[in-house]
Design a protein around this nucleic acid. Sequence first.
DNA 1: ATACTTTTGAGGTTCGTACCTCAAATTGCC
DNA 2: GGCAATTTGAGGTACGAACCTCAAAAGTAT
Lengths: 352, 352
Amino acid sequence: MEDQKQKLELVKKPTVNDIARVAGVSLATVDRVLNRRPGVRAVTVQKVQKAIDELGYVRDTAAANLARNRVYNFLFVLPDTDNEFVEAINSQIAEQSRDQFIERTRIAIKKVAPFEPQDIVNILDAVVSLDVDGVAVFGPETPSVRDAVKRLRDKGVPVVALVSDLPSSERDHFVGIDNVSAGRTAAQLMGRFVHRDGKVLVLTGSRLARDHLERRQGFDLVVAEEFPHLEVVASVEGRDDPDLIYKMMPEIFETYPDLVGIYSSAAGNAGLIQFLSENKLSKDLVIIAHELTPLSREALTLGTFDALISQDTGHIVRSAVRLLRATSDKVPFNKAQERIRIDIYLKENLPP
Amino acid sequence: MEDQKQKLELVKKPTVNDIARVAGVSLATVDRVLNRRPGVRAVTVQKVQKAIDELGYVRDTAAANLARNRVYNFLFVLPDTDNEFVEAINSQIAEQSRDQFIERTRIAIKKVAPFEPQDIVNILDAVVSLDVDGVAVFGPETPSVRDAVKRLRDKGVPVVALVSDLPSSERDHFVGIDNVSAGRTAAQLMGRFVHRDGKVLVLTGSRLARDHLERRQGFDLVVAEEFPHLEVVASVEGRDDPDLIYKMMPEIFETYPDLVGIYSSAAGNAGLIQFLSENKLSKDLVIIAHELTPLSREALTLGTFDALISQDTGHIVRSAVRLLRATSDKVPFNKAQERIRIDIYLKENLPP
DNA sequence: ATACTTTTGAGGTTCGTACCTCAAATTGCC
DNA sequence: GGCAATTTGAGGTACGAACCTCAAAAGTAT
């Protein structure tokens, strides 16, 4: 009944030649329309456009990139800290550079002094003279950075914001988690994990960092709404500095002897971990921290930390690259694939 | 000092021509070696191989696929149920088919009667006569299925196991979560969320499904190790059937009046949800279920469920396709990217 | 050394697209 | 209607690799 050697589907994609045939024009004209080259009358453009729509033509990017010998040059602008999370992003970029290389994309990294908006601005302004097809920025949302991003985009360079959003600028995309939700998630876990009445401390990084503020905000909301047995005390700014955090802890425990939980919403966990283990405090306290790193992973495994809220740095980097490429090619992308999840890690679901 | 129009990097990939030049042979010979065509002396093969290694040549798959006009034909074998999770995978495949189409890959779906290994075997054996470049199987691990997978692989067809592993067969990859860890994760959440002493029920699907067994196993281990205040009672088999589950619930609550939690480790949540809301039981019970679906999402939002353990169906499908392609091309893949995470969802970190 | 076999090289075509040139056709304008 | 400007077509080359053919070169056997 059936063919003996059957194909599952034999449909094939329309090509530029099909468009030319259907539109009743020459290949050269189709090419002019597709690549927005001048010298085509509006009527003709419409004829071609109609044929494209009818056929459902989609440009074969692989062939196109081959033909034009295209190479995507992307630049990642990262804060120059020894922060474990930034380091993870850094090494993800390095790692994935190899794979990206064979896919015609080259990635460069520029480190800028943290909390130095002017440094970022200078780099962004220098980009146009370089041969850069897209920029990913991990930096603070200051007016000057915002304007620099705008300037870049006005010159046609795609820009994505990494980890910390720059909503007021006109960045093409944001690659990272919703930090209010992250804070809410931390609060829900805290509320559920803590069985006693008491105070909860939020250890934050900087009042200037948008992501830290948002986490705190989300955390407070949920504790207030759902967990009356907890009281969130004023944030402590650790400036992402392990030493500073370590030094601040004794005073905090003097001030709040009835502390039942700590939400470490920023970096610098090393100081916290050191203090807790030296004072054997982890058993009595619920600690929820951010970002899965070698250090936090160990703390979770040993029971020093009770849960981690995290975002997958590998995913972030891949997503940023895909989005820059799609934006550069003016091509749609898969929204669900680019959504960065708010990961919750317990010691039981750590990746191997 | 510097060029005024500088490129960030100017390195370019070696091509087949570079190999020919370095090896001191002709392009035709390089081609013969690369594509394992006969008629090349061993010495010459080695010369070419040496040049390839020296240059770090990597085949440009895009160009190669273009030249040979390659199309990947993949087949997904799924159980034919109205189960929400399988439905989600199904629609992910359909959705992504569009994107995959433009990337030269065609995906077909075959539904097989659930719990009918023979049906799967028949399909797998029929595959060889079709023009199929890879198969993804979501099915039970029975000896006959295992052998059929082996047969397929012996004929050079890549096979990946989906969601439920077929470790004893020689599937090329497993795309899914570690279900023992998933069970452990559920237990940890249960132990932390339940503050009273009492019994915990595990609602499972079938004793035959490997994934369900593993979840139960992981769950029991962690409860036993860490949460002496809880007692896990004998599993109840819901056969993924909402109606059956709904009907069984009253008897369960009679038998265990001191139930404090339910771990719904399989499908059929609709029956559980209906029973719980009709009897307003959700407040007193901690419910942890599996898989983020419209139904479970709503239950989580309303507070009927307290947490979900999930795996991203979109990721699973994309990963399966990437792995089939990589296996088919005998090309390496990014292990970290293909790892399916054990997602934990609270109502706070649900995707929008 | 001759005949024969195996290996190698040179060259071409194809895939789908980009981009270029030059000539021919069409259009607009006075 | 005539002229210039604009638009269109025809054709070629290139990208990197696959695959094909045919002839030349090298190796092997007698």
